[in-house]
Design a protein around this nucleic acid. Structure first.
Lengths: 224, 224
DNA sequence: ACCTGAACACCGTTCAAGT
DNA sequence: ACCTGAACACCGTTCAAGT
């Protein structure tokens, strides 16, 4: 089933009745895109590079995909559809924690996801499992429907923010010496005493456990 | 004082002793960039457009700015330096809430900030007021230094995530009918009963108060 | 030291034409 | 219906030269 009803596709239920048979499908394009990203990173995923990968003209792609944004959406949904959703505990609070953690961990595996996430929604059929689970658990825990929606939004904002911010930080670190490091080395102890005191130790406080701790705090507050 | 010790600049304390006088300063460039953004949006802020605004060659800019990323950093720091930091209440919890809200509100005024934020740090001299205040208040409230840093991180991730996600949503809405709306109109009540029940009412739950409510919850949990 | 001109190595996308 | 070829309207940035 095409995810966009408006686009012609050779993947639809009935094969097209007229015209010449397609040489590639939307699935082929998505697979090729994944290959490009795996090989060279998201920043190299261009319509032209993708066309080269598929040995076709850039314009051939536009027959299967509305534009590049549409391609990225497809890519993200395809990835989300592959996530294995775990069995959930009964306690609603635990359910929220587990669901959010699964979502976070699944999205943090590949750095390219963060880039796509930053300008796109996560709305694949399968990704909807996430808001559904959180909202349902929040209602079970006693929140009203609007409060449950607000709680989900807060959790999503926290999760997306963590992914985006730490994702960029990792990339920056990989690119070489940072402006950030320079700033932290020359802090004014008069103006920002706490930061100056922390100084270079800042990076030592491991970022790993931060997501879990913050999530717990947020959920505790939301359900209070 | 130039914000980057390595770059030549006519803004530095001593005027350059040799060579021809500069026709434009870093400040001029930043001001022109603000004008371009105000007129046409961030997506139109290119080195070439900026050069046109300043009636110079694109390459002239590279004499004052390392590259485009550097320009965006300058822009953001310049904006942050103009934020009026308010007097803060004594109670550390309230102090955190006020500081975070000021930061959030200041950054949410102009939509372009979110785009720059998504791939850059916020490290201007003045922007450091934010982590300094939060961490100091958290320590005053009884947290250890590592816990205070973690608390600041969580608050920043939440704030940045809220700004980025809702910022994109606003832009998408402005661009026309959304894929999102289509998805929400055709939800499968079997698979995602809660979402289907909420349906189009989703957008009604106002996003305005969400930041404040989530922040309160997060801080409550962090200080518990 | 400061700036220009021309060029390089790219982008996403439209449009008209071929099969 | 599916795909190609050529072109349009852009990018950021390097490099050699002018003043």
């Amino acid at each position: 089933m095409g995810k966009m009803g408006t686009m012609p596709t050779s993947q639809s239920g009935q094969p097209a009745r007229t015209g010449r048979p397609a040489r590639m499908s939307r699935a082929d394009i998505v697979a090729a895109a994944h290959r490009v990203i795996a090989a060279d990173g998201v920043e190299k995923l261009t319509m032209r590079r993708l066309a080269a990968e598929l040995a076709c003209t850039p314009m051939a792609l536009y027959h299967h995909v509305r534009d590049k944004q549409d391609l990225l959406r497809l890519l993200l949904d395809d990835y989300a559809d592959a996530i294995a959703w775990p069995a959930l505990p009964d306690d609603p609070r635990q359910r929220i924690l587990v669901a959010a953690t699964v979502m976070h961990d699944a999205l943090s595996v590949h750095p390219w996801i963060v880039d796509v996430l930053a300008d796109g929604d996560l709305l694949g059929r399968s990704a909807l499992w996430f808001p559904e689970t959180i909202i349902d658990a929040a209602i079970t825990a006693g929140l009203s429907v609007p409060d449950a929606v607000a709680a989900y939004r807060a959790i999503w904002h926290y999760t997306a923010g963590e992914l985006i911010v730490t994702g960029r930080a990792v990339r920056r670190a990989a690119e070489g010496p940072t402006y950030r490091a320079e700033v932290f080395a020359n802090l004014d102890a008069e103006q920002v005493p706490r930061l100056a005191e922390i100084g270079s130790r800042w990076t030592e406080f491991d970022t790993e456990t931060t997501y879990a701790a913050g999530l717990k705090a947020l959920v505790t507050g939301l359900l209070a």
